[in-house]
Amino acid sequence: MSPPRVLSCTEPPVRERAPPEENRTSTHPWCTAKNLEVCERNRPSTYIYKIADEKIRNHAQQGLSSSHEVMGLMVGGLFRWQDREYTLVRDVVTTDLDSDMLGVRFRADGFAGLIDSLDDLDFNYRIVGWYHSHPGIGCFLSHIDHSTQSGIFNQSHHSALVVDPKNKELEVYSGTELTSFRIYWDRFQDPC
């Protein structure tokens, strides 16, 4: 039997949209010094919505008491402005997890919940990356994380956020390198 035949591949155009205004963005209070250096040297490639960041950190805090890792998907969109592409992380979704101190993944019976969360989003989503926690062990990409980056999140607009809620550290990677990112908030929203 021959394998399925590819007839065509289509890709929606990247939408033109100005990035968040600079006065509605900031560096992340938990950003590590080495990631901050990257942020200071480069224009942001990723903007993370303040509420998405809060959800990620709250989720990581929940796993802290048991020292279990937590994980979820970052959803948003890819945009272009003045010939430069950037990613907005508008929200996060997660579900029940199989996790311990060394690893994490979605439970097989958790995908129905994950799909419900995706369907509940009020925008046409793209999964733009993933987050997971390293409770008490600092931010880095493990061997397993490298495999996830190369096997799934291997496009330039993808990112991996790693958070250590115990040490209050956070890093964002594109591929296996630290990338420049900022937190953004809506007009009239309290940035604190």
Partner: peptide, 14 residues
């Protein structure tokens, strides 16, 4: 879902 792309495949029932 993570690339925004759509592939059209031709499949046999088996």
């Amino acid at each position: 879902a993570e690339m925004g792309k759509e592939l059209t495949l031709e499949l046999s029932p088996d």
